[in-house]
Design a protein around this nucleic acid. Structure first.
Lengths: 217, 217
DNA sequence: CAAAAACTTGACTACTTGGTCAAAATGCAG
DNA sequence: CTGCATTTTGACCAAGTAGTCAAGTTTTTG
């Protein structure tokens, strides 16, 4: 019976071999690069295959459809991308919690700009592949954190501000540096690469947003 | 010789007929819709032709290449899109000037979301068609206005803030509502369509940003 | 109104690209 | 080492799409 397990069992965890693990990873990594640069339609399977260092039919052996790669990629990174939001602690100090959140987001924009661009592109085109995710997973999470922020405002710990718009503003500003990178570079030139640029950015974003929501007495 | 003018003269203003004017407009309007939704690669000439109500060869009679439509469209809207920035008046009241600018941008995001998405998509994919524009036209303009803001800060009329990051933040937040519309809708639901939503948005954005840059005494 | 110019289109071509397939190569358990 | 399962790939196909073209239709002009 031990052998039978290696055959497909209805709900079995689909045993994955060593080679499968390696190649799926290679493909997904390559696909992230390419999809985030050219979008879904703008990307060809050949491009991904070449970057992953394998033939197209080989790639299709692991992901039978182009869509599969794309969706797997989105799912894989979405939760991770949202993790910082989930970490906002209702019991913590409001300004401190938001400072932490914004800082984390700026770091992510800097370290994983491809992930940011992948989402941005997907949303920009109407989120055909993840609209379910948006309503079933993202919305409840945002609703919850909006509730937390609203409570903080009610307790006078923050200036009166619409929590949803505050969250959108944080997303917009932090992801801007990843999504609109070429524009930022075109305008700020060589500064962008320089060490300390990220810190300077974080400083500017934090001072404006936090300054804008600190309670006035 | 009067007739000779109708023939192509090197630098002549390329006489355009009534029909040309109408059809070019039809094509560009249709193309804006389609390109802003599906991106350059995701758009087919047939789609544009159908939406413009003409045959594909007919469309190609006016714009011999798909690229031509796209580039014309970008150029046509880019300057218009930037106009509000140019209007910032160094002699005016800083807070008032920025309030006006932000309000104009939010209005544009609401009235021309397709234009916003067209640019967003182009920038997201590395701005292959307009990188020249960015450095030759956008950068100087931003540099100038950044200078104005820096002066205001120096005069103590604004809290110390990096002018470039402030401008990016305004762009990011205002355009977010056009570019990430589906996400905003997924989260805020029916509120988005409601009358007054735009005003509420403007109010939230203005209060945070302006609150964040008002001078502290 | 007649000829010229401008406009329109059905049919077609060349090329790209997602996906198939059968056969070969490789890995692995006994 | 042997035989079975997994992995790999060259060759191929069908669909989709940018762009052409020659032949027609409409508009403009003298």
């Amino acid at each position: 019976m031990a052998r039978a397990e290696s055959k497909k069992l209805k709900d079995a965890p689909e045993k994955t071999t060593r080679i499968q693990e390696i190649n799926r990873r290679l493909i997904l990594d390559a696909a992230l690069d390419v999809f985030s640069t050219y979008g879904f339609r703008g990307t060809t399977i050949d491009q991904i295959a070449e970057r992953a260092g394998m033939s197209k039919p080989n790639l299709l052996y692991y992901f039978p459809r182009k869509q599969n790669i794309y969706v797997t990629l989105l799912e894989e990174t979405l939760t991770e991308w949202l993790a910082p939001l989930a970490e906002i602690d209702a019991e913590g100090d409001p300004i401190e919690q938001l400072r932490k959140y914004i800082t984390l987001k700026i770091n992510m924009s800097e370290t994983h700009p491809e992930a940011s661009r992948l989402f941005a592109n997907e949303i920009l085109h109407g989120a055909p592949a993840i609209s379910d995710f948006l309503t079933k997973y993202l919305k409840p999470l945002v609703d919850e954190k909006a509730g937390v922020i609203r409570r903080w405002v009610g307790e006078g710990k923050l200036a009166p501000v619409d929590p949803y718009h505050l969250i959108f503003m944080i997303w917009a500003t932090t992801q801007h540096y990843a999504d609109f990178d070429v524009q930022v570079r075109a305008i700020m030139g060589s500064q962008v690469g320089r060490p300390g640029f990220k810190e300077q950015t974080a400083q500017a974003v934090l001072s404006i947003i936090l300054g804008g929501i600190k309670p006035r007495n």
